[in-house]
Every structure is written in structure tokens, then in C-alpha cells.
Amino acid sequence: MSKEEEKNIKKTDTPKQELPPIIDDDGINLVPIMTKKEVVAEKRKAKVNLGAVLSIVLFLFITIAVVAFSTISKLQLNNEKEKLFALENDIKGLSTKVLDNQEVLKRVYLYKNISSSQFSARKIFDYFSEVAKKQGDVSFKSFIFGSDKQHAFEGSADSLDTASKLWYLLQKDKNVESVVMDNLSKRSDSVDFSFKVTLIPDAFKSLDEDQVDVVKQPQQSQGPSTNDSDSSWEDYKE
């Protein structure tokens, strides 16, 4: 091949590249142009760098959010603690009043506890005496006040009939929850009996509860009512 033919082949084979002017207005340009491979690599690098920057920014946002949340929570807590401290100091100034109130309450609770189980022995005795007298010749020999609801009494009646009627009436009485006859024995001229009664709750209020009304109203001396056994005894006053 002649040299001229080789040169022509080289010209047709090699891609035409526009070479930048080596000498231009600014000076001598020594920076080589980038190859396609280098261009692709640069583009990829730019994408990776952008991704990295976005990740860092996101990470920063999360960090700021977490730190801000934690700091704000701590600041709020400190503020409220200061308010609470000031309030506690105010309350300490009222401690005497609070303690005095507690002292009074202790005694009020004691009074309530004790008075809840109180009952008027006189009211109960008089009530059952009246019930017994209505049946005939009945007298009590002993009366045991067990608690505010359970009591027992012994006595004697003139006949078995009287004692039975008494038992029957006690069973029907509105203030009596239950009656148990412990003993019924006949003598030559009398019948001895012994009963255990359980009253309904609050059947006979203690006099203390009525005393408030008594203080406000003029005191009256009043004997037990002579009505039948079903009459109410709630208005009895000493």
C-alpha cells in the first residue's frame, strides 16, 4: 500500500474529533477533553453524590427533630416542676389548717363509728314491755341487750295462751326480723318464757339522733304509747 493510500484509510477510519484550539484568546488549553466513558462515570458520580447529600440532609432533619422534641419536653417538664414547687410551698403554709381538719375528722369518724352501733335501751325495753302487757299478765324478769339488733328477754306469763299470743305477735311485729323461743315452761300458776329477737336494721333510732330535734323543740315528758303493738315508736322523746 502506498503511503498516500494508508493516510486516506486512516482519515476515513478514525472518528472525526474536533480538537479544541490549542492556542485561543485566553491562552494555551492543556485540559484534555473527556471521553464518553469519563462522561458516564462523572454522571454516575454526580447521582451518587446527590443521593449522599439528600441522605445527610434527611439524617440532619431527623436529628434536629429528635433533639428538639427531647429538649422541648425537658423544658416543659422543668417549667411545670417549678410551678409545682411554688404550689407546694403555698400549701405548706396551710399545713396547720389541714392538720387541724384531720384532728377534727379523726374524732368525727370515731363518733360516727361508735354512734352507728348505738341504740336506746329504754326504747327497746319499753316497746317490748308494751307489746307484752297487751297480751295479759306478762312481766319481764331479765333483758339482755346484745347488740343494736339482737336481744333476749325472759319473763313469765299468766297462761300458756298468753305466752303463745306474745310469741305470735312478736313474729308479726314490723320491727322484728326473727324470733326464736329459747324456753317455754309451765309452772303451777305461771308460764316462764325466754325469747331471742332480731330486730330489723334501724328499728329503734338512738336518742342521740333525736336529741338534735329535742334541743330545738321544747322537751316533752311522754310515756309509752298505749296504742296497739303495731304503733310507731319513732316519735318517742324523753
Binding site: 352501733s117 324478769k141 331479765s142 333483758f143
Partner: peptide, 11 residues
């Protein structure tokens, strides 16, 4: 404030 218990009344 007093509280009576086991009251036993006997003739």
C-alpha cells in the same frame, strides 16, 4: 363518747 356493751338488766 362512750359505748355500752353486753347490757344485762335483771329484776
Amino acid at each position: 363518747i362512750v359505748s355500752p356493751k353486753n347490757i344485762n338488766l335483771e329484776s
